[in-house]
Simulated assay, not measured.
Amino acid sequence: MTLPGVKCTVSNCKFWQQGERCNASAIEVNVDGGSSNAHASDQTNCHTFAPK
C-alpha cells in the first residue's frame, strides 16, 4: 500500500519505494523533546522510519 501524496527521500527506510514514495500503512511524526507543538519542520521526526 502506498500512501498517496506522501513523499519520502530516505532511501534506506524499509518503507521507501521507487519514485520517493512511502509504502507504510500509517505514519507517525513526533515533535523533538516530547512537546506537542512545533514551529518548524526541523523540530519534528518521523518515527515510522525503520532501516532496510
Rank of each mutant, 00 (worst) to 15 (best):
T44S: 04
G5Y: 10
N30D: 13
C8P: 00
K14F: 00
N30S: 14
S41E: 08
C46Q: 02
V6S: 04
Q43F: 00
T48R: 07
F15R: 04
A26Y: 10
T9F: 08
N30I: 14
E20L: 07
C8Q: 00
W16H: 13
C13Q: 01
T2W: 10
T2P: 10
S25Q: 13
S36N: 13
K14S: 03
N23F: 14
C13F: 00
N45Y: 11
S35H: 07
S25E: 12
H39F: 06
Q43M: 01
C22E: 06
Q18L: 09
C8V: 00
S36G: 12
V29F: 05
A40T: 04
K52D: 15
C13E: 01
K52A: 15
N45S: 14
Q17K: 13
N12M: 02
E28I: 12
T48F: 05
Q43L: 00
T2E: 12
S41K: 05
H39V: 06
Q17E: 15
G33I: 02
N23P: 13
G33Y: 01
H47Q: 14
A38Y: 07
M1I: 15
Q43W: 00
C46W: 02
W16V: 07
I27M: 11
C8S: 00
F15V: 03
N30G: 12
A38L: 06
K14H: 01
C22D: 06
G19C: 03
H39M: 07
D42K: 02
C46M: 03
E20H: 11
V10N: 09
E28C: 11
S36C: 08
Q17T: 10
S35K: 11
A26F: 08
Q18C: 03
S36Y: 11
V29T: 09
N45T: 15
I27F: 04
T2I: 14
G5T: 10
N45P: 05
V6C: 05
P4S: 08
N45L: 11
S41M: 06
K14Q: 04
C46D: 05
K52F: 15
T2F: 12
K7A: 10
A40P: 00
W16D: 07
P4C: 06
S25R: 13
N12T: 07
N45G: 10
A38D: 05
N23H: 15
A50F: 08
Q17F: 09
F15D: 03
G33V: 02
G19F: 01
F15N: 05
M1S: 13
C22S: 09
N37G: 09
E20R: 11
A50N: 09
R21G: 08
C8W: 00
N23Y: 14
R21Q: 13
A24C: 08
L3N: 05
T48N: 05
V6I: 09
E20W: 12
Q18G: 09
S35I: 04
H47C: 12
